[in-house]
Design a protein around this nucleic acid. Structure first.
Lengths: 157, 157
DNA sequence: TGGGATTATATGGGATAGCATGGATATTTA
DNA sequence: TAAATATCCATGCTATCCCATATAATCCCA
């Protein structure tokens, strides 16, 4: 599975074009769709992205819900309807749709942020502010130093 | 699993290049990614490093947290976004990114410090000062001489 | 066991290829 | 036909590769 690491800031030109970092592109190499899938994050002013295989995994988790349930409705309404396919041009660039640009408040620069199996696109200053806060949370709770306690099905709410 | 032992000091040239000690490289031999992964340490002005397999283990630990929780967000925002892949060149060297160089205050020399499953890169003088600190040594020895606590479901809060 | 030869490692510098970026031209869509 | 979209080309910059050399470690044989 593709692993997206590190953070890269690239320029967004007047047409909304921006280069996807080469490291991210090579992480997607081998997938059938030559590009990414992108959707607005519902927690942050950011764009959540991944390869088509990642999208298929999300689709499978949705299928775990009952077809007639409210959860199924809510997930499909947000997940699939707001997701766009953005194919690479010959130079590894994508064109950000205006809806995603306004959602992430992006102007002329975009931060590509690795998050493991997925990555996000942020307005750089917004991300730095968020990252500073997140680092404090992680270090205060010492989350990284050892594996967290294993979850069992019985304890989950 | 790779084991990193002993300490080696190597030169950092004007391009930020530095040789990874041969012993560390041979410890990583056999892994699919020909290089290391590196991230800034939370606690010290040092760089924490390991092989890709080590990174995948960290990634799995993250998965133990609820996908939609703030802890999961905080961890991925710090872990993956600050981690970089550094591949070896033909001579076993890596290029340290400027962000990591400034974090560890490295100028023209780098100390590679073995820490078992991972290793750290320090500015040599900083590391000697840290190593000579009696309280650090004492606390670390207490940790290493004691077997790691067994995790059971009962201990969890 | 000693000393010379050979290999591995670390380090420096220059050439090359890939990447990000801007602009121009073709193609589609309304 | 105009606007929006996609494809192609040019360029500066940076990272990567390749080769040369010095030093240290190892090996081999007398």
């Amino acid at each position: 599975m593709a692993l997206f690491l590190s953070t890269t800031v690239n320029k967004v030109d007047t047409k909304g074009r921006v280069s996807v970092p080469a490291a991210f592109r090579s992480a997607l190499a081998g997938q059938t769709f030559h590009g990414i899938v992108a959707m607005p994050s519902f927690k942050y002013p950011a764009i959540q992205c991944g390869g088509m295989e990642w999208m298929e995994e999300l689709s499978n988790s949705v299928n775990a819900y009952d077809f007639f349930s409210d959860e199924h409705d809510a997930l499909t309404a947000t997940l699939f309807s707001k997701t766009v396919q953005l194919s690479f041009d010959g130079d590894g660039r994508i064109v950000l749709p205006s809806s995603l640009i306004t959602h992430a408040k992006i102007t002329n620069k975009a931060a590509f942020v690795g998050r493991g199996p997925l990555f996000e696109i942020w307005e750089p200053e917004d991300f730095y502010a968020y990252q500073l806060n997140a680092t404090n949370i992680a270090s205060e709770q010492k989350l990284t130093l050892r594996p967290p306690p294993q979850k069992s099905k019985e304890e989950k709410h």
